[in-house]
Design a protein around this nucleic acid. Structure first.
Lengths: 217, 217
DNA sequence: AGTATAAGTGTACATGTGTTGACATTGGTG
DNA sequence: CACCAATGTCAACACATGTACACTTATACT
């Protein structure tokens, strides 16, 4: 069997295959089935690598998934922090936040597609992980809202409720936007407008709220 | 171990296997992976039928999926119609609607689990079908809202926006509730309370809205 | 009754899957 | 340079998958 292999196509660079595998998975998720119905061989083929090479980087497909999730959220958290820091007042704030957020979504389409499909369709651990991140955003937003002067009389529970309303709405709109064609600029812009209006509407309601509101108008 | 089935185990009744297949798929989705990562053989095994028997009822797994979707929404639409008709005024209306809706969700857990996972994780046609149904609910709600006296000055587009905000929020809460353990009564009730509060909050905002609201508070 | 048809069974096969083990090639370190 | 650990390849396996075919049985209808 000692046959001389005439230099098959090789991939020299250091940790490039690992990234290739992640990108391949992301690509496949973006234009095909959800991650859970993705086979190891499919991913390696897409990455231009032999199946067994997979194990050099991930023990398992689910390990790949977790890594992908981590990668998706690391930069997202970064961006969120920046959004929270730029302290624009009032109206400008909502509009500004929505704009930067949605541009970020557009620039990281595959990641969001991945997360979006895993939120409800993924494995239990996957869903749990995503949900944890979202709950984090909700808490942070609640903290920000607590500083609004007209919300001093609102208790913590209701603050959480309001924040989760905002976050859930933005998430839903994001998922709807991902359903649009990648270069449907008009549609995407429409989503942005809608998101801004919805959040503004919620803030109108928030301004009206009293935590001890009795069950009648 | 030999039950009262002397010859080969058979299923006599007319169209029972068809339903058994649907139930099996629903069960598997409820306690395992999403529908897309479900194999034909798995479903038939669960239904207690030989794999090839599948083709007597469905041409394909995706055909099964579409049928399941239809079954899920048919009764849902029915219920929605009833909710819309019971004309309770004001505060009572929100609470009442939420209660009947969420009890319905509890009583049809597997169906909702299925739809929830398919909304973003399913095939393109599947997602599209679900989205169409949701849009229908939004339109109907918008029509209902148009009759509110304090909304006469709101244009159609904004009405749609408001309705979709309500629906999206309820959908999100529903999905969150499905994540809870089946017999976590406390958690489920908490979700109901939250849903009612969120919708009420939105209505506060709605009451404040003017379609020509300039970009300032 | 008798029989046509719908429904279910068993066998079989080609294809895709995850994973193992032994080997080949790289790139960075001494 | 020589070496070695990391990385990639090949061949092979045991098993699951979808589906075709020929068959048996139950049900419905005359």
């Amino acid at each position: 069997m000692s046959r001389e292999t005439p230099t098959r196509g090789r991939r020299p660079k250091r940790g490039r295959t690992r990234q290739a595998l992640m990108d391949a998975a992301l690509d496949l998720v973006a234009k095909k089935a959800p991650f859970s119905s993705l086979s190891l061989r499919e991913v390696t083929k897409r990455a231009g690598v032999v199946p067994t090479a997979f194990y050099r980087h991930f023990s398992d497909m689910s390990a790949l998934g977790l890594t992908l999730l981590d990668e998706s959220f690391r930069t997202l958290r970064q961006m969120m922090r920046e959004v929270r820091q730029q302290e624009l007042p009032n109206e400008r704030m909502i509009r500004g936040s929505m704009e930067t957020f949605f541009t970020y979504v557009r620039n990281n389409r595959t990641h969001f597609l991945f997360v979006s499909k895993e939120l409800y369709g993924g494995s239990a651990t996957m869903r749990q992980a995503i949900r944890r991140e979202i709950r984090l955003f909700v808490s942070e937003l609640a903290m920000d809202m607590a500083r609004f002067p007209f919300l001093v009389r609102v208790n913590a529970e209701d603050l959480q409720m309001m924040a989760s309303l905002v976050v859930n709405s933005v998430v839903a709109l994001t998922q709807e936007m991902l359903e649009l064609d990648e270069d449907d600029d008009a549609g995407q812009h429409e989503m942005l407008i809608m998101a801004e209006k919805q959040v503004r509407l919620i803030y109108f309601g928030v301004a009206q709220w009293r935590s001890d509101t009795p069950p009648r108008t």
